[in-house]
Computed example of a mutant assay.
Amino acid sequence: MTNHDEAAALRPLTLAWVSRHLEADERIVGTEALHGGSTAEMRRLTIGTRDGGTRDLVLRSFVDPLSVEHAEDWLTREAGALALLTGTGVPAPGLVAADPTAAQGEYPSLLMTHLAGRTVLGDEGLETRVPLLARQLVAIHALRPAERPREYVALTTADTVVVPQGADAAVWAAAIDVVRRPAPPYEGRFLHRDFQPGNVLFDVSPSRPAGARITGVVDWAATSWGPADLDVAHCSTNLALLHGPAWGLRFAEAYEEAGGALAAAASERLYWWVRDALACSEEVRHVAQPWRKAGRTELTTRAVEQRLDAYVIALTDALG
């Protein structure tokens, strides 16, 4: 529902900051909360234009105290990524303004253009969407920016993995041993670093799911430089948890079918893919919550844990 009392939806300093970045004679005429994000508050702002029409912007603000401490880094990186992506053909939002330290508003924020489309997390039409996701990721990895983003960061260690209750202990012990090894050598690529169905917008009709097309890729706050396998692994993990382990394995095949190059050795692929799956073990509750809010109510924390266990088993069977 749109809230036409913009002052009630935006705090005064933020309202003033946004207004300074509008065209002459433009004003905010409505706001709408956007759902699906897990770290930031997202609002669509409807802007009344001088010719009597409207256009939309998106305001991304970090309001949670735990997120605010990382906001400067995340928003600075996202602003840089959006500026870099302009004109590349990758369907990303356009940067309007950034206030990473809340110097001008109540919260660290970023203002960007609004992209048409919606996230699609259901099972129907998945056989069409997976190749589209793969082709889009290949296009992202093909970018060669004049200035590279910073090297990827992997926070999960063998000691921080959380083994799900009832999981196959022997399989998980072997998987944990995999990430104790040094990272394999790799050829660096431009990474989104959180490429997954929740960050991809589609134009798709419920009556024609096979006619889906991607209209946008959002949330570039973790943009990095690193192995293509890491981005592929992350999307694979999300697909496995949303739709079942077989779809996680299928995404890697679709990525190669689209022209993407992955690590040649199975042991190297296993390292990256297991690393991402084990990273998810630490935040299953955090991952599952926005999916349930988006309508996948069957994906309880326990259900997602069980799918994660099945996916780790599938990975070790396929690559171990």
Rank of each mutant, 00 (worst) to 15 (best):
T128C: 14
D99P: 10
A175W: 01
A170Y: 06
V90N: 07
Y107N: 08
E127F: 09
A97F: 02
E187S: 11
P182H: 10
L143Q: 15
E127A: 11
R144C: 09
G87H: 08
T86Q: 11
P149G: 01
G105C: 11
V171P: 01
M112H: 04
L115M: 05
L132W: 00
D99F: 07
P182W: 13
G166I: 06
T76Y: 14
T76N: 13
A154K: 08
V163G: 05
G94D: 13
L126G: 13
L126P: 02
V161E: 13
V90M: 13
I176D: 03
G122D: 13
H114S: 07
D159M: 09
P149F: 04
G105S: 13
T156Q: 12
R148W: 12
V161Y: 12
P91I: 07
E106F: 03
E78V: 05
L137F: 08
T160N: 00
A92C: 07
A92S: 09
T119P: 02
Y107P: 03
Y186A: 10
A183D: 05
V178N: 05
P100E: 04
A83V: 08
D159L: 09
P185W: 13
D159C: 06
G105W: 11
A102E: 11
L82V: 12
P185D: 13
L132A: 00
L121W: 07
R118K: 15
Q136L: 08
P93K: 00
P93D: 02
S109K: 08
L85D: 03
P145N: 09
T113R: 12
E151I: 09
Q136H: 11
R135H: 08
D99A: 09
Y152E: 15
E78A: 10
D159V: 07
V178H: 05
Y152R: 14
A116P: 14
L155Y: 11
A97H: 05
L82P: 04
D177E: 14
A92H: 06
A102W: 08
A134I: 00
Q165H: 10
V178M: 03
A154Y: 01
A83Q: 15
S109F: 13
I176M: 04
T119N: 09
V130N: 01
G122K: 06
P145G: 03
Q136R: 09
A83N: 05
P108E: 04
A183G: 11
G80P: 04
A146M: 01
